[in-house]
């Protein structure tokens, strides 16, 4: 079952060490939310889309486009209606509120698309290895990556359960609200009970593979920073500097906006 966003490839972004890549995502997020004006996130979205082109990450972006546009659109509309400005445009919408709404929408789209490009070019194990090397305690990283490994298994189990209960006449579409809610019980209980049942089996297998056997464990995946990786760190640092600069100078504020 193919549930992950990773897209096979060998682009420069695929080859980048996961640590600087994570820093780039963090830098992107900071820089994107720094200013009110849509200019900065707009430019960043352009960069992200260029990166997607380089990395061949379009399949991943295509998969999330609905949700991406909904989030961006929702934020834009919400602020356009709820924020206040000085130049009326249409009803409660003002030039300033619309501009601000566009800004927030672009911020969300740029950052989420950025993280999707990151996930499209970073394997799960690289992500976990990167987090460990950045100081995440191993048990947390283990919980994270093993859960990630089990997600497709449970998605598959969930799909089977839905089919099994439908075959017994369950119809979640009909009935009033409370009835429909209650109809989810036959779906939730088996998936949860099945997972709980497997807890002892997982724990026994873990024990049998020496989990926690030694105070120090070694790591098979080795990460090495090359010149390109350091360059990426520098770019991330610049993004963070940009964030500070924008915040300190108050650049990019929308005059007359009031939210």
């Amino acid at each position: 079952m193919d549930v992950y966003l990773y897209v096979e490839g060998n682009s420069p972004l695929h080859r980048l060490d996961p640590r600087p890549k994570m820093l780039l995502v963090v830098g992107l997020i900071f820089l994107a939310v720094a200013a009110e004006h849509p200019l900065v996130p707009g430019a960043l979205l352009g960069l992200v889309l260029a990166a997607a082109q380089v990395a061949g990450a379009w399949p991943a972006l295509r998969r999330v486009r609905t949700i991406l546009l909904t989030i961006g659109g929702f934020s834009t509309v919400a602020w356009a209606l709820l924020a206040r400005g000085t130049t009326p445009l249409l009803g409660p919408v003002t030039v300033e509120s619309l501009l601000y709404g566009l800004g927030t929408g672009l911020k969300l789209v740029a950052t989420i698309a950025g993280s999707v490009v990151f996930l499209a070019t970073t394997k799960n194990e690289e992500l976990a290895a990167g987090l460990i090397r950045l100081g995440l305690p191993y048990p947390v990283a283990f919980a994270f990556s093993t859960a990630l490994r089990l997600v497709p298994t449970f998605v598959g189990t969930g799909a089977t359960i839905i089919q099994a209960q439908k075959s017994r006449g369950l119809d979640v579409e009909s009935g009033h609200l409370l009835e429909r809610m209650r109809k989810h019980i036959p779906l939730v209980v088996p998936i949860f009970a099945g997972a709980i049942r497997s807890a002892n089996r997982l724990a026994m297998a873990l024990e049998s593979k020496g989990f926690g056997a030694r105070p120090r464990r070694t790591y098979y995946l080795e990460l090495r920073m090359g010149p390109g990786d350091w360059a990426a760190v520098a770019v991330a640092a610049l993004m963070f500097l940009g964030f500070l600069l924008i915040r300190l100078t108050g650049w990019g504020e929308i005059p007359g906006l009031h939210r």
């Binding site: 549930v3 048990p139 283990f142 919980a143 994270f144 093993t146 859960a147 990630l148 490994r149 089990l150 997600v151 497709p152 298994t153 449970f154 998605v155 189990t157 969930g158 939730v188 998936i191 949860f192 997972a195 709980i196 497997s198 807890a199 997982l202 724990a203 873990l206």
Partner: peptide, 18 residues
């Protein structure tokens, strides 16, 4: 038990994704 954390996370993520 770390396994329970793993399982809760995996099931929660699995039912969130669809």
């Amino acid at each position: 038990m770390i396994v329970l954390t793993v399982l809760v996370a995996a099931v929660y993520a699995a039912v969130l994704i669809p």
